[in-house]
Design a protein around this nucleic acid. Structure first.
Length: 348
DNA sequence: TATATTTGACCAAG
DNA sequence: CTTGGTCAAATATA
């Protein structure tokens, strides 16, 4: 909202930029990484810098003579605040007189993130389509050099609730079972179309804007947990083609990265953390599964309790199967960005 | 009837 | 000019 100039918000932007830059670095060392993915990453990084600069009320491009700076594009486009920039924010003496007045209102530089969804024969066509939100297709375009067209979707509630969320869906050239989904903007609408799955406790929140409220409530907890989450847990994909029938193909074993990220969870919890995965049955909803008898030799109820106590600090909806079959966390919003290589935890 | 998708036109940016 | 993104009329679906 009108948090322009708020140091915490700026820091969060920069942290996200840092995370994206790290992802880019990873991609540069991954031969299979597509040029588009890298391009998107760098685009997002630039957007974040622009946003952060705007938040700090950075004035016009400083004339040359500063050799230590990267060359700037000729025209710096100022991005909007992610959600409904409020023009009246009154932080300090702030004059935007030397800025283009129109620059503030127009350009659409909402936050973006991508996600790759693999469609298995079993899940039919629903995989990429049903991600918990209702979308309305408003266009389709043949893309240069791509063999499949790109579909353009916007939130169904755009007119009613002014929800500006948008996504583009494109089938991958190399692997037609993978759909690359490019999301733009967070949903500001009420999530009416949730798939209330059996064991998941639905949120009782009837606020007009659930996601935003949840994100805000997360932001208001200044604990290390949240900071670390925002900084990003990275989970590397391993063995996407697991044939283990009890797990979906979308399951992401922990890598050492997550341990390096440190203080998110106590080490002894991390050691026994099982795989977070995206269940195909509730496609698009991310679960963490922690199983005492699970694949990653989860060590017992004490750790489970520790895990729960930490999770309870940050996630409003926690369900635990009574005698610990598993603990599944349902996020009312998508806390992940998944680019095929890494899971990103945080606000996309 | 209303609401969603298809599809060529339109437009902005490069 | 080309390209990607959006609009909107026509069409489809419920």
């Amino acid at each position: 909202m009108d948090n322009m100039g708020d140091p915490n918000t700026i820091i969060q932007e920069l942290l996200q930029g840092l995370e994206l830059a790290r992802q880019l670095q990873l991609h540069l060392h991954t031969p299979s990484s597509s040029h588009e993915t890298r391009d998107l990453l760098i685009h997002n990084i630039i957007s974040i810098f622009e946003k952060a600069l705007q938040m700090v009320n950075w004035k016009a491009p400083v004339p040359a003579g500063e050799s230590s700076q990267l060359p700037l594009p000729p025209a710096i486009r100022m991005s909007d605040s992610p959600i409904s920039s409020s023009p009246q924010s009154e932080d300090s003496e702030r004059d935007l007189k030397d800025q283009d007045h129109n620059a503030f209102k127009k350009r659409n530089t909402l936050p973006r993130w991508t996600k790759k969804i693999r469609v298995t024969p079993g899940m039919g066509v629903e995989g990429p389509l049903d991600d918990g939100h209702s979308w309305r297709k408003y266009g389709q375009k043949d893309i240069l050099g791509a063999m499949y067209p790109r579909g353009y979707y916007r939130c169904t509630h755009r007119t009613v609730q002014g929800c500006m969320a948008t996504k583009q869906v494109q089938r991958s050239d190399e692997d037609p079972t993978i759909f690359e989904i490019n999301y733009r903007g967070n949903h500001t609408c009420t999530v009416a179309h949730s798939a209330a799955t059996s064991s998941i406790i639905p949120l009782e929140n009837q606020e007009p804007n659930q996601q935003q409220n949840i994100l805000q409530s997360l932001e208001q907890q200044p604990n290390d947990l949240l900071l670390s989450l925002r900084e990003g847990l990275r989970v590397q994909t391993q063995n996407l083609d697991s044939t283990d029938p009890s797990f979906s193909p979308f399951r992401f074993p922990l890598s050492t990265n997550i341990k390096n990220e440190g203080q998110v969870f106590p080490p002894h919890v991390l050691e026994n953390f099982s795989s977070p995965y995206i269940s195909p049955a509730t496609s698009g909803i991310t679960h963490f599964s922690v199983s005492p008898t699970g694949v990653n030799n989860f060590g017992g109820n004490q750790n489970l309790a520790t895990f729960e106590s930490h999770i309870n600090d940050i996630i409003p909806a926690v369900t635990s199967a009574p005698n610990s079959e598993a603990v599944a966390l349902e996020f009312p919003f998508d806390p992940f960005g998944f680019d095929g290589q890494n899971l990103r935890f945080g606000n996309p």
